[in-house]
Design a protein around this nucleic acid. Sequence first.
DNA 1: GTCTATAATCTGATAGAC
DNA 2: GTCTATCAGATTATAGAC
Lengths: 199, 199
Amino acid sequence: MQSTKELIFESAIKLFSTRGYQGASMRDLAKDVGIKESSLYYHYPSKTAILEAILEYYMEGFKESVPDKSVTEDLLKNFNDPVEFWLFGMVEYFKRQPPHMEAVANIMLNEMFLNNQCRTFVLQNMFTVQKAATEVLLQGLLDKGLIKDCDVSLIAEQYVYMIHGLDIETRLLKKDGIDEDFIRQKLIKHITFFIEGLK
Amino acid sequence: MQSTKELIFESAIKLFSTRGYQGASMRDLAKDVGIKESSLYYHYPSKTAILEAILEYYMEGFKESVPDKSVTEDLLKNFNDPVEFWLFGMVEYFKRQPPHMEAVANIMLNEMFLNNQCRTFVLQNMFTVQKAATEVLLQGLLDKGLIKDCDVSLIAEQYVYMIHGLDIETRLLKKDGIDEDFIRQKLIKHITFFIEGLK
DNA sequence: GTCTATAATCTGATAGAC
DNA sequence: GTCTATCAGATTATAGAC
């Protein structure tokens, strides 16, 4: 059984991600939860406080889901093909995501040009942290001799950029109701091609 | 001498791109232009009409700036190095941009998750059209023997994704006031690396 | 914890004088 | 073309009863 506060939280994720923070009013939110506007203020002091709670949730979830170095090295022992390793790791990564992360990431991307906190987070984490994590993976593959010698830092950056481009397109296509399986195949195709080129 | 309508148009580009469409009110706009709110309605029937005028302006500017096939082939004759060709073409591309295109593209990216018109445009043009244009360039390089045999379609897609990731990061960094020259060098570095890998 | 009632402000937009 | 005046509705938020 969910508390009212949790219901508000989840409703806010839903409405902020679909209508934007400014486009979803406290009235909309109260109606969606099934309570009166004033009752929202018993649980959260303001509208911004709800957004901040969501952002904080996302930031923690993101940190936890970033692959750990030792775990990566353990996993690497079981693979002799870099593509298989990469695709398996990606599936594991998605499995580890806390609930609602996709919708919350949508809020981040919605607000990144308007909200300083969102912008800083996207820059520091979606770009910098993901690049660092990718470097670890590539270095692991390199040390094991599964990919050829290369500029790990530069390739990690290119990979992260490519994934972000793909990610944005994916989110837009999903809004258009495009078949999720088609999108998944596209992702697999591009990742396979990218890693294959490093062999 | 600019007409009031032009002043409103440019002010709207500025405010919509920095505060978001919903975050910039007609009151803000009137104040920025230096007229009264009601006077705005002499020039535009509604707030959405202003946004639509901006989007239309962007769409036309975008279409015009996409490199033409014959022009590309002419340009290609002067180059024997794919990287030099690519970087030169990129500079030419930016030179051809109509004014305010960077700010207007910011509006597009701001609203792409909220506004159907923006989303459709980003998907069809920023992804599909740019991919097609990139294919033409790559095929030209391939025909001339300047790059090795490859899957032109797939590589064009990867290039476009990478550019979009880079573009988003660039826009976020600019909001943080990061040195533009640093960003330009990063762009050159990545494009060089990408095209170099195709030789 | 949830409600009713309401405040104070902001929103996009219109009517009509000059 | 620009102004003053104003509207009707939405916005976030608070006070106080139950």
